[in-house]
Amino acid sequence: MTTHQSTPVSPVPASSGPMTPLPARLISVEKETHDTYTLTLEPPSAPGGELASRFRPGQFSMLYDYGVGELPISISGDPERPEQLVYTIRSVGPVTTSLVTRAPGDAIGVRGPFGTPWPMTEARGKSVLIVAGGIGLAPLRPAIYHILRHRGDYNRLVILYGARSPRDILFKKELSAWGLLPDTQSLITVDYGGVSWRGHVGVVTTLFKSIRAQPAETYALLCGPEVMMRFALRELQIRGLPKNQIFLSMERNMKCAAGFCGHCQLGPFFVCKDGPVFSCAAIEPWMDLYEA
């Protein structure tokens, strides 16, 4: 490969605005399931690069693969370990496939963090119910890490996770380990179990009957397929959770994450800056509208 010496370079300094990806070195790629990988990066070494790992649970970055493209990816690591940037990516298209097949030492472009976080401060003193489907567990893991680091600040922790099949279960060891902690429930269900599966079968809402927490003093954090969240928030309200204690994370096409490209709009919201985390009170009217 040739070097870039022939590239015209003007003496003017490069832009360092929110639209410029900063190169970050890939430390490791860990296989989670047959199609999902966790990438660990060093924060970018460029000036301001350290800000990329100062995130709040629920926020996302824009990850840029040179020559391929850029995508919004949730941060799945521990917010109190800013020395590394962790992303869990399901390989479903050209950019995600290229990202997960990168080798340690390669550079990946990072912008962000962007978006609204989970309501970790408001939920203090309350129980927290995590409802996740598929890759939706990734943006919720930082919230779980936060609660476990500040365990005294929260009451019960209930994690309900739904996956398509046993081989699609993400963070399986962690899910089991969390279930063994005091005041913590961690339940898994799958859509299709197969012959060797001895656990729950059914959509994630079928686990709701097992929740041991007081609805009125519980904050629910939801992330997963939209259809799952639509039914989950209905079911949670039936069980007595107030709308302003239910939060969910939305996904939309995003090109900029800064409110400039218009792609992520959902009614009056820009999912990139008004979300991705919304309270049920704000987003519920838009959840039932087809093709909104």
Binding site: H4, V9, P11, V12, G17, M19, P21, G105
Partner: peptide, 24 residues
């Protein structure tokens, strides 16, 4: 709005035109 170059799996951002300036 982004000019970049690649070298052995690493890439770096090249200084481009001043913001708002036309190409060149």
């Amino acid at each position: 709005f982004v000019h970049a170059a690649q070298d052995n799996g690493a890439f770096h951002i090249l200084p481009g035109e001043q913001p708002g300036a036309p190409p060149g």
